[in-house]
Design a binder for these strands. Structure first.
Lengths: 193, 193
DNA sequence: GACAAAAACGAACGTTCGTACTATATTGTG
DNA sequence: CACAATATAGTACGAACGTTCGTTTTTGTC
């Protein structure tokens, strides 16, 4: 790999970290440069604009998310087992982050802020929901879910649950968060069984 | 009311609006002053610091939330009817906002940002969860919920549902959001009945 | 090792940030 | 109406913002 690509990854890694703590909008080029000990202008040259930097951080996060959350779960048997793996992977992903999940914070940051970043985020979120939909479909095919299950409703339900988990875990630091999540998940799955 | 108090309300109103769109951290004194057509220093004098301004915006939002969401629902009969009223009020509150709900956005913004604002938000959120808990307790007393219902679990479940609604409604602009919410709410209530 | 290409730097631009201070208007009270 | 209290404006500050530019250093290739 060329030197430039290596540096870019270092930048994106640090940028992802900062975005998780402060939000994508508060990732400043100057502070990010300071963290990784390079010059503002040197960092800037990699992206040409702050907006591009933000989009690249988001896409970098998307790639990591696919690798560590989605793809591993698709390797397990379709159905409830896969769903539980997915949730576990998501929680591990979420827990490993210094701050919060960049997708969760960006979703509120960019709900009313037009631009490339919002567009990028919207696509990612719709893809994610489609992914949840397909996993529910696979659960129907596997016989774990009833045939008449509304897969888009499943996506809504599961995503809501994860958002609740994230709030309780990250902001509230509630000690019973995992228990709450487990109960809610089992209830959810039972309703679709 | 004294002149200063009137001005303060104008500021907080505009600040709340801006916070809903850009996030509480991006409410700048300069831009806020421009919106309400007064000087930066004149506005600043009301709060002595940006942090105080943010805290006051959050508390102002809290007062509005109590008035328009919580208190009206406490006037209706305890039980499932009250819960449905609460959810309706919350959705009306959420829909009326220009951007997103300040509590939702602040919850991600301040999950990892120490200071007075975070402390204020934490108290509000815990109060809100306690409120949901008490509403569930009242539903038990009214005979709408089973006696063995875990009220803290109810709070988690309902709050999660609202977070999902907020995401689908504000960011994704999903046309089926209200239907999704309705189905999820009914399923939730049935499980506690 | 030479030499072009790529990468990183340092300085500066105009703007905005939060905050401080002083001065002028406006308000409420006797 | 007078006069103090309150409220708003004006100006200035140092720092940080995103961005541009020309220069220097590092890298990869022949």
């Amino acid at each position: 790999m060329k030197k430039g690509q290596e540096t870019k990854i270092v930048i994106l890694e640090a940028g992802l970290d900062m975005a998780g703590q402060l939000g994508l909008e508060c990732v400043s080029i100057g502070s990010l440069a300071k963290v990784i000990k390079m010059s503002k202008s040197g960092l800037f040259a990699h992206f040409q604009s702050k907006e591009n930097l933000q989009v690249e951080i988001l896409n970098y996060a998307g790639r990591l998310f696919s690798e560590s959350v989605i793809l591993p779960s698709l390797k397990t048997k379709a159905g409830i087992a896969r769903i539980k793996t997915l949730v576990d992977n998501w929680i591990n992903w979420s827990s490993a982050l210094t701050g919060g999940c960049i997708f969760v914070s960006a979703s509120t940051e960019y709900s009313d802020r037009p631009g490339k970043v919002r567009q990028c985020l919207l696509k990612q979120q719709n893809d994610w929901i489609d992914c949840l939909d397909r996993i529910a479909q696979a659960a129907i095919s596997a016989g774990d879910f009833r045939k008449d299950v509304d897969c888009q409703q499943f996506a809504f339900d599961l995503y809501s649950l994860m958002l609740g988990f994230h709030l309780y875990f990250k902001l509230l630091n509630n000690s019973e968060t995992k228990k709450r999540k487990e109960i809610a998940l089992n209830r959810l799955l039972n309703n679709y069984r």
